[in-house]
Simulated scan of single mutants.
Amino acid sequence: MRSQQHRPRIWDISPPVHEGAPVFPGDTPYQQRWAATISPGCPVNVSEIKLSPHVGAHADAPLHYDPEGQTIGDVDLTPFLGPCRVIHAIDKGALIEWEHIAHAVDSTLPPRVLVRTYTTMPVGRWDPELAAYAPATVERLAAMGVKLIGIDTASIDPADSKTLESHQRIRRLDLRVLENLVLDDVPEGDYELIALPLKLVSADASPVRAVLRELPR
């Protein structure tokens, strides 16, 4: 009898999106209504939604932080799919400094890095004290060949930043970014990342259904 084939484990690292899901203060929250419902004269349910593209797990486009930048529909998808490393830097303060992730960085570092900062990601509330990347950390990761950085908070910059220094680093270094990931149950280590943005041809960001898949044994 053949042994059962091993199925790689999948971690869903996307927070739930619903009415009441937290957004940056002033941003457009998720809203939904039914444009059509199943009834004797209608065979289907059809919903209508309104939301900021930064609700839930999302990918920023260069247009978000650069007036001349690409829209999310124009960006290359390559950075959003492939080997990545999850690194824990839990409760280390306002900025992820190099010393907080150096323990998991070596010559085998994949071109995608996701950092967990929360013990439990607050999926139901806005966190004004969110942790962010120190600009120097972004610089050093880029120097090691990293093409995408991710985080389990709403931004790679502090919530009250007016200069967005880490966003400006990824603009200059041509990195991509994922924000609002849920990494609570993901051990440190290497995975396959799948987090493709929608082809929103004029938008500054896109929601993603971000997942990690166990690498082949």
Rank of each mutant, 00 (worst) to 15 (best):
R9Y: 11
N180M: 10
G82D: 12
T78C: 12
P67S: 06
T119E: 13
L130C: 09
V17A: 08
V123F: 07
S52Y: 03
C42E: 00
A35D: 12
G145S: 10
Q4V: 15
S155V: 04
W126L: 02
Y191I: 11
A210N: 09
P111F: 06
D91H: 05
D157K: 04
L200Q: 14
Q168K: 14
D66K: 03
Y65H: 14
I149R: 02
V113H: 01
P79W: 02
P22T: 04
P122M: 07
F24C: 08
S161F: 12
S39D: 01
D190W: 05
P128M: 06
A35K: 09
Y191P: 07
V23W: 02
M1A: 15
V211A: 14
A21R: 07
D66R: 03
P197H: 04
P43S: 03
I151Y: 04
R85N: 09
E68Y: 07
P15Y: 08
R116K: 15
A61L: 07
V177M: 05
W98F: 04
D76M: 13
S166C: 08
V201Y: 12
D204W: 07
P110M: 11
D174R: 15
V46Q: 14
E97C: 10
I49Q: 13
W34L: 12
V115T: 08
M144I: 00
W98N: 04
E214Q: 15
E19D: 04
T71E: 03
L95G: 08
V75S: 02
H58S: 09
D76I: 14
W34P: 00
P79E: 06
